[in-house]
Computed example of a mutant assay.
Amino acid sequence: MAIIKLLTGSVYGTAEAVATEVKAALEQSGHTVIKAEGLDAVLRDGADAVLVCTSTTGQGDLPENLLLLYQELKERFPLLGHLAYGIIALGDSSYGDTYCGGGRLMDELLTELTAKRVAEPLMIDASETASPETIAVPWAVEWASQL
């Protein structure tokens, strides 16, 4: 089973709640899931994959608690070819072009850093889904089965 670093970006707690449900489901499937904050936490302990669960704020930006890691990744630019990754992005499609912008930013950066995307990013629309974990958990379990 895989060692997965879980990165969460949340403003009002929804993405954090989804990440908690995803973590429990992945652990029940036999994976080791470690919530990580900061670049050093992501890079140490030999992870197999990174799973990002983030909301979007402002004009398609990352929440502040994930923005610092994003900036550090861009600045230090560590090549992550040894890691697989997945993205769970929460947003509201009524915001048009900025819909799930936080997840899109992380997807673009992880691709630039040569990490291997496993499955298309999951985009969860708040205007259509009141309980995003009902979509995120099965997606994450399927994603992890492909690692």
Rank of each mutant, 00 (worst) to 15 (best):
E108Q: 14
A17Y: 05
Q28M: 13
I87W: 10
T20M: 15
R117K: 04
A144P: 11
Q28W: 03
A36M: 06
T57H: 14
R76E: 15
Q28G: 13
L68P: 12
L39D: 00
I34V: 15
E120I: 04
G38F: 06
Q71C: 04
Q59L: 15
P121V: 02
T32L: 11
H82I: 01
D97L: 14
A41C: 12
Y95V: 11
V42G: 13
L113Q: 06
G46Y: 03
V18Q: 07
A144C: 09
W143F: 07
V50S: 05
E75M: 01
I135N: 13
E133T: 04
S93G: 09
G86H: 00
L113F: 08
T56Q: 14
V50E: 03
L73M: 08
T20Y: 12
I34T: 14
A144M: 02
Q146L: 12
E21W: 13
L62F: 06
E27C: 08
Q71G: 05
K74G: 12
E16F: 11
T32P: 11
L83C: 01
G86P: 03
V137W: 09
S131P: 08
L109Y: 09
S145P: 10
A119G: 12
Q59N: 15
A19S: 09
L147P: 09
V22T: 11
A126S: 12
I135W: 14
I135Q: 15
E72F: 08
A25H: 11
E64N: 03
M106G: 07
A136M: 10
V141S: 14
E75F: 07
Y85R: 08
